[in-house]
Write a protein that binds this DNA or RNA. Structure first.
Length: 806
RNA sequence: GCGGACGUGGCGGAAUGGCAGACGCGCCAGACUUAGGAUCUGGUGACUUCGGUCGUAAGAGUUCAAGUCUCUUCGUCCGCACCA
């Protein structure tokens, strides 16, 4: 008999303590065991606390982790804190508290909230990016990047957020606005630390072919890296020795190049300024373009503007004709060569420009009416008006033209990438100090490894400055140091690293988090890496995921990690929306607080609901009623204790097939992250137990084992209350029996001409051929077709019988 | 414009080419109750002359059989975007 009602508030803390005390989920350092490494993106411990989005990812991989342990793996499922970042710094400024204290408090709050949800994290391996023992190695990796020429300082226009007073990486600018505060981003020239991620563009692309990432992640990364193949061609400037180099993916269309466009900043304008007759006009245009933000430039994209360069002409190397030269801001200095050959007949932008300025449009691929509209879908096309290329298909023409130009020595093959180098400097306090000293005589001097960690000094004010200098610049005691090389007075670098630095390698630290001699021991890395399964948000696809792959590829190249790629498998969860279908936010008033949920329905029901609410990879609106529904389900699981026949260890004969089917389906569904259908199957199973009115200990055990990864506390409680032996999380994962997946007799549908007319019970081993011969003669079936002629019978074993009659 | 995902009841969503709507929410009716935001039982796509008929964004096609495959159109969401 059941002596206690189901009270999550009683049993959940009890088991959380028990698991922790007994180290049930700690990863073992026995490297002879088969390992499995599950990873979720470590949270930023914001002051707002846990969001209902966090448990979605956490529960999903908690299920995998728990299942793997039951399957006999040594599982590493770690947790840590991505704790550097702007909100903490802003909060510290507003409330006059040190960011380190804010971070400590937030972490403690977050950890407590996570623990209440019963995740099987190994808390003994926690990492915190703001801990000097951690960021010491972030700085160390930076020095390695510097040593290998991948970190460099460069004077360049960057995206500047006037509100946050901070430089942003391209990846952090969304539609011309600051990703964080939404303010419009302006351009500003600053001397910045950069990381040469572009040197890894091809490796980052190639690596994608070797890993199991969901397609949209791969597609998005490929898109972001933006490889395009083509050639660079020199166009002579008539009457000079100068040539203009352009990048093109369409050398086949060169006979249709009727003009050229340079970006307003192009160096040729200065170089040939004495021949240009409208220099003032050009300079004015360039000036205006420079002051436009990227946002304005894209806003105005429909209206092409530009100025012709008077006094200069270029020569089209395909046909020797002189063509005019223009400048326009639709040509970017930062991509390709900063100049293009314009083929208005077959490029939409060139066509717009040519139409606006009445430039000639020459068709070179047949098939469209290029005077009316650009003809760009030319894959199948044939070349016309193109000398030696006439009659060739586009693909062939590309090859012929490229070879022709290369042989003449005026072109070379070239691959371009959209990917830009990573702006790595931040003019902020709450980040890792960059371990560099600037000396008047010795230049840029990296710190010695033995000088790490370079500690973030305590400052009185964290306010960023309008001048764009880091708050650290005001700390003269800290800034002024003797040069490590010559000993003369020198200054420390005062920029700090971006938040992405610490998160680019944290998964390596988990392998050996307390190591004070290396970032992790070779042995630990060899054993644990690569991560077997990494789940995270789509919003990190072009930021964190790409950056961390870059760092890992680099560490691999210098021999510190074995595999090139850090993550074997990457999946992504959908966002949880508010009940009204909008994004959850304080201002919309639709935020669901995890603590309230745990209090109302318990952590287990909360976890079950998050997995049940819909397809894992889709955005789903929250439903408080739905959440209460999963609590009802757990109540029913609990009350099965009243019905269980504890003396029977075998499965009930009449439930054997359903239990076996459930074991198979739930096991498969968990692996495919189809948590919603796995739970639906368990609900069906429980409903069936109630319908039958009884179940055996064997039936109950199967249910509890299958449910335990999702609802660990209630399953552990029942398991131990019922005396099933040991801790449920240390049991073996159940296996289904192939012999009991189908009942001996199954119901099939009988169709006449495709319409269902009857149901029929047949033996499950009836073959297709036997069914087609015998079933039409069965009395119930024969009756249906009486008086009509049977043309054909189709039997799909175990499914249906379709009779075609006339 | 490019890339990706998708369109199924009142709602979230299930369906290896084989009985559309599993499971849950909500709703309706009943039982037990002083009571019900508890629990249990039954019902719940639409239309219906109660025989059936129609139903997966729209249209066509392939097939004995299409939510699923092919083509066209419409629509939604996400990412990227003067990238030559």
């Amino acid at each position: 008999m059941l002596n206690q009602p189901y009270e999550p508030s009683r049993i959940e803390p009890k088991w959380q303590e028990y698991w922790e005390k007994n180290q049930v989920f700690a990863a073992k350092s026995d490297y002879s065991l088969p390992k499995y490494y599950c990873l979720i993106e470590f949270p930023y411990p914001s002051g707002a606390g846990l969001h209902v989005g966090h448990p979605r990812s956490n529960t999903a991989l908690d299920i995998i982790s728990r299942k793997r342990r039951m399957e006999g793996c040594n599982v590493l499922y770690p947790i840590g804190w991505d704790a550097f970042g702007l909100p903490t710094e802003n909060y510290a400024i507003a409330h006059h508290v040190p960011p380190a204290k804010v971070t400590r408090d937030n972490i403690n709050h977050f950890r407590e909230q996570l623990k209440r949800l019963g995740f099987s994290f190994d808390y003994s391996r926690e990492v915190d990016t703001t801990d000097p023992e951690y960021y010491r190695w972030t700085q160390w990796i930076f020095l390695k990047l510097y040593e290998h020429g991948l970190a460099y300082k460069s004077e360049m226009p960057i995206n500047w957020c006037p509100n946050c007073k901070i430089g942003l990486a391209n990846e952090e600018v969304v539609a011309g606005n600051c990703e964080r505060c939404g303010n419009e981003v302006t351009r500003r020239v600053k001397n910045q630390w950069m990381l040469a991620i572009t040197k890894y563009a091809q490796k980052l692309l190639d690596g994608l072919d070797t890993v199991d990432f969901i397609d949209r992640v791969k597609a998005q990364q490929r898109n972001w890296i933006g490889r395009s193949e083509g050639c660079e061609v020199d166009f002579q400037v008539a009457g000079t020795k100068e040539a203009i180099r352009v990048f093109t993916t369409r050398p086949d269309t060169m006979f249709g190049a009727t003009y050229m466009v340079l970006s307003p900043e192009h160096h040729l304008i200065d170089k040939l300024s004495d021949k240009i007759t409208n220099l003032t006009e050009l300079r004015e245009y360039a000036d205006k373009a420079a002051h436009k933000s990227d946002f304005e430039r894209t806003e105005l994209q429909k209206d092409k503007t530009g100025v012709e360069i008077q006094g200069l002409k270029a020569i089209n190397p395909a046909n020797g004709k002189e063509i005019p030269l223009w400048i326009s801001d639709y040509v970017l200095m930062g991509y390709g060569t900063g100049a293009i050959m314009a083929v208005p007949a077959h490029d939409g932008r060139d066509w717009d420009f040519a139409t606006a300025f009445k430039l000639p449009i020459i068709e070179v691929v047949a098939g469209g009416d290029v005077q009316k509209a650009p003809y760009t879908e030319t894959e199948e096309g044939v070349l016309v008006n193109s000398g030696l290329l006439n009659g060739l298909h586009v693909d062939e023409a590309k090859r012929v033209m490229t070879d022709h130009l290369v042989q003449r020595g005026i072109a070379e093959y070239k691959v371009n990438y959209k990917l830009r180098d990573w702006v790595f400097s931040r003019q902020r306090y709450w980040g890792e100090p960059i371990p560099i000293v600037h000396c008047k005589d010795c230049g840029v001097v990296p710190l010695q490894e033995s000088d790490l960690p370079l500690l973030l000094p305590e400052v009185e004010s964290y306010e960023p400055t309008d001048s764009g200098e880091s708050p650290l610049a005001k700390m003269t005691d800290w800034v002024n140091v003797p040069c490590p090389v010559c000993g003369k007075p020198a200054q420390r670098e005062t920029d700090t690293m971006p938040q992405w630095a610490g998160s680019s390698w944290y998964f390596l630290r988990y392998a050996d988090p307390h190591n004070d001699r290396e970032f992790a021991s070779q042995e630990a890395l060899d054993y644990w890496l690569p991560v077997d399964w990494y789940n995270g948000g789509m919003e990190h696809t072009t930021l964190h995921l790409l950056y961390s792959r870059f760092w890992h590829l680099f560490l691999h190249d210098i021999g510190l990690v074995k595999a090139p790629e850090p993550y074997r498998k990457r999946t992504s969860h959908g966002m949880i929306l508010g009940e009204n279908g909008e994004k959850m936010s304080k201002s919309r008033g639709n935020v669901i607080n995890p603590d309230d949920l745990v209090a109302e329905i318990g952590a287990d029901a909360f976890r079950v609901y998050e997995m049940f609410m819909g397809a894992f990879d889709q955005a789903i609106p929250w439903s408080m009623n739905g959440a209460r529904g999963t609590r009802r389900f757990l109540d029913r699981v609990w009350r099965l204790q009243e019905m269980v026949d504890n003396s029977q260890q075998e499965l009930s004969p009449q439930l054997r097939v359903l239990v076996n089917q459930s074991i198979k389906k739930v096991s498969d569904d968990y692996e495919k992250m189809k948590y919603n259908t796995a739970i639906a199957q368990l609900m069906t199973l429980v409903n069936e137990f109630y319908d039958k009115g009884s179940l055996t200990a064997g039936d109950y055990k199967a249910l509890l084992l299958l449910l335990s990864p999702v609802a660990p506390h209630i399953c552990e409680e029942i398991w131990q209350e019922q005396g099933f032996g040991g801790c449920i999380h240390e049991q073996a994962w159940p296996m289904h029996d192939e012999n009991y997946l189908v009942d001996d007799e199954v119901e099939i549908a009988v169709q006449i001409n495709g319409k269902i007319r009857a149901k029929l019970m047949v033996a499950n081993d009836l073959t297709k051929q036997a069914g087609e011969e015998q079933l039409p003669k069965a009395p119930q079936v024969a009756e249906l077709i009486e008086g009509r002629q049977l043309v054909k019978a189709i039997y799909v074993p175990g499914r249906l019988l379709n009779l075609i009659v006339k």
